[in-house]
Design a protein around this nucleic acid. Sequence first.
DNA 1: TGTACATCAGTGAACGCGCGTTCACTGATGTAC
DNA 2: TGTACATCAGTGAACGCGCGTTCACTGATGTAC
Lengths: 210, 210
Amino acid sequence: MLTYFEGVAMRARYRKGEGERLRIELLEAASQLLAEAGDPRDVSVRAVAEAVGVTSPSVYRHFPSKQDLVREVLALRFGEFRETLVAGARGTSDAGERLLRACRAYVRLGLANPGHYRLLFSTAGMGPAGAGLGQGAPHPGAPSLATLIELVADRVGDGVRSSPLALELWASLHGIVDLRITKPELDWPPEDDLIQLAVRASDEAATNRA
Amino acid sequence: MLTYFEGVAMRARYRKGEGERLRIELLEAASQLLAEAGDPRDVSVRAVAEAVGVTSPSVYRHFPSKQDLVREVLALRFGEFRETLVAGARGTSDAGERLLRACRAYVRLGLANPGHYRLLFSTAGMGPAGAGLGQGAPHPGAPSLATLIELVADRVGDGVRSSPLALELWASLHGIVDLRITKPELDWPPEDDLIQLAVRASDEAATNRA
DNA sequence: TGTACATCAGTGAACGCGCGTTCACTGATGTAC
DNA sequence: TGTACATCAGTGAACGCGCGTTCACTGATGTAC
């Protein structure tokens, strides 16, 4: 896809009906740069364009603004996150084990993709910076949370309201991941004990409230 | 301290030997703006200067760079944070109760000052943004962590290494605070149950490892 | 006691930079006749 | 089959903005004589 002219890499433009393919490439490049940076403000439109081999005004032929580009990446990554939870829970029908596996998948994915994790759970929606998500719009992470709530609900049965429990569990998992990401210089114990502890604490809370 | 000239507020400059007082004012203004923003990048040198009623070059008579100003605020707030932990633990000699109280103080302070909390535990040291803390320099939050480790050590006795336990406990507390701050739109259960659960989980882990 | 002067607090104007975004354009390509 | 043309992908240059920071300065004030 690249030709060279006087030693400079030149990208061949797409044929007439194929312009939408650049859109995909831009999303992929933006996603990767956001993963490296962990913050939309550290990723410029120019950088995304350059990563694809295109000039920055080209981005605006596919996205109305930087905000829209970022928002779309966010939605993609949230979708992936949710799928990881679901996939993690597979392989057993025991509700407790399914929940534990999903939690492990949560933490593992977060630690493996710290930039994206921060993007999704630390930057997005925070302050004037954020990813500039529309105030009224539904949060793109809502389905992920719904999935976690479901897993908790399956575990605790009908006697207890599951969504506060899920939020508490989420808080525990978030603490485990986020601090490890922001303070990598500390001597963190292996995360698995802590995950089990968090899930067991959630069980215990459920029992107390039943 | 303000006079008016043609309807514009004008600050009287400090007398000859008193220039250092502006330094304090700048630190206070920066601290407040950082509390509102939660991120050093959303607070400009110009804004700090304006808050005090001074022009931006004046800042450079007291701080070599923005980074130094921010770093100093960070150190102040970390100190305050640590003091809050210590003060929270006062009033009882029971080590378990002291730890629980300190944890409550941690969460309460974080939720009462979300901007500062983010500044200290979410921004600082993260990525190229961060507060630009020197790599080699000791982290200004180290004493806070040391205090938590001490409280845990008093609780669990000599049989168990307390610092991994303290890190795990910290992770739990951080999750409780950070998610509530970043996702205020969710329907969070009261935090007290969760704090107790976290402390109890820590106890339990200590017992298992003894 | 009066005055010259060094010192100090603070300013006004400007710098270079990177950013998001706009605008008028270029040139290749598929298509209609 | 050849050609004119509308359409499409992408560009080059520039915009206004806010930022951190620098520089040469101004004018009040304490102090030494």
